[in-house]
Design a protein around this nucleic acid. Structure first.
Lengths: 232, 232
DNA sequence: GTTTGACCAAAAAAACGATTTCGGTCATAC
DNA sequence: GTATGACCGAAATCGTTTTTTTGGTCAAAC
């Protein structure tokens, strides 16, 4: 096996790219399979060679996005030699999320984009949220000495969720011109976390990065599992 | 004039109380004037002796709530001798907001509660937001030496908006059992703000409280103005 | 072996009138 | 003077039928 993609993989990528753009723009319900096929330059039948249904196509798209964003997060943490503090890692994940309009819509559970899928039974979000990855992230960071251990992990994780949810959702509330650059915003958020949650005795940055690597591995497994479930 | 309310004032209060409970529960659109009258124990006609329309009744309710919450905020700041730091004041306002279900719905711009009023033209929110009270709050706090002056007030204010919006909206995303007590949550948020935004040289708490007093006065004026506009 | 697009049943949307509900008014009662 | 609720027109809701759209299939074409 070489690293070049097969013809099929390239076509699947084109389909998902087309679906992503259309769904972000018009929403899941208002985007038809026909339109996705046209935008991807394939026939409608071809889509069903890759996915069993519109729903599974969408779930494939969601899973790809989860993976892409977590990969981007990991890369940015690995690339930054200064990284390892809680703030720098949180900044990295906010940045990674912010790059993807689809990911933003997912995190804020935007009904305009996710449409009827949002309330479809047994959807991927229910399954994904039942794993409490955020709490585990904080617990492992505490164990690694990157986060103060005198505050309950549940509470820390919840405040981080609040900030994250506010960050991706604030665009629904404010006009674009009232919003400062997201670099400045993210910078300040990172500072706040660092100053409030870093232990007094300082941190071993490499340990923090090690936690991220381990967590992303875990996360990939969860995604693979979700992928598997979808196939049945 | 004595401090006892007139009969009319008492009736207006009963009407607003009834409206508040029904609207929080069933939403603006699904609550009828008839139901409000019944719940308040008055006739429908009586309602129109106090308000020119259903819309103005609702705006009266909104303005009363703004005033009540800002008053509760001020009281809690005045009562707490330790208050004056940014964190303690922010904690107080989150608490005050959290006490009022209606205020929570307003801050998260909940369509289930605010219904068609949310997109009604020239609604009170548009007018209220055009005044950038949050930015002015931060600027005055910086001038009083309670907040670091080396960070742009716009950015600080925006991050505080993000936290606030996330705080009142997170209930839409998570199940109640996944949410820690709001006391713990608020406590940590306050710590984060204090540690990240307090100047190194420490603060004069009384100066901070003085800013609050001045701001609430300003705010009352803005509300009075909005009230006036509504009457035309 | 691949790919396509005409085709189908099911679901959604539109059309439409009948019916009910609702915000607001005002003649009447107190 | 104050308060009420029957009353009105506008608007929303409902029930039903018709029309259009859409997800998914598969015989035919390549």
């Amino acid at each position: 096996m070489s690293n070049s993609e097969t013809k099929e993989q390239r076509r699947e990528k084109r389909i998902l790219d087309a679906a992503s753009e259309l769904i972000v723009r018009f929403g899941y319900d208002k985007t038809t399979v026909r339109e996705i096929a046209d935008a991807a330059g394939v026939s409608k039948g071809a889509i069903y060679l890759h996915f069993d249904s519109k729903r599974e196509l969408f779930e494939g798209l969601l899973l790809r996005e989860f993976r892409l964003v977590s990969r981007a997060w990991l890369d940015s943490v690995e690339a930054d030699k200064e990284a390892g503090s809680l703030g720098s890692m949180y900044r990295a994940i906010l940045s990674a999320q912010h790059e993807s309009e689809l990911m933003m819509a997912i995190y804020r559970q935007d009904p305009k984009v996710l449409g009827s899928y949002l309330h479809a039974e047994d959807n991927i979000f229910e399954r994904a949220y039942s794993q409490s990855v955020h709490v585990r992230f904080v617990e492992q960071m505490q164990a690694a000495g990157v986060i103060r251990q005198d505050i309950d992990a549940q509470v820390i994780s919840h405040v981080m969720d609040i900030v994250d949810y506010g960050f991706v959702s604030i665009g629904e509330l404010k006009e674009p011109e009232q919003i400062p650059s997201h670099e400045e915003t993210i910078e300040l958020i990172g500072q706040m976390l660092d100053r409030a949650l870093t232990p007094a005795e300082g941190v071993d940055r490499e340990k923090g990065r090690a936690v991220i690597r381990r967590l992303i591995d875990e996360y990939d497994e969860i995604l693979a599992q979700l992928m598997g479930q979808g196939d049945e």
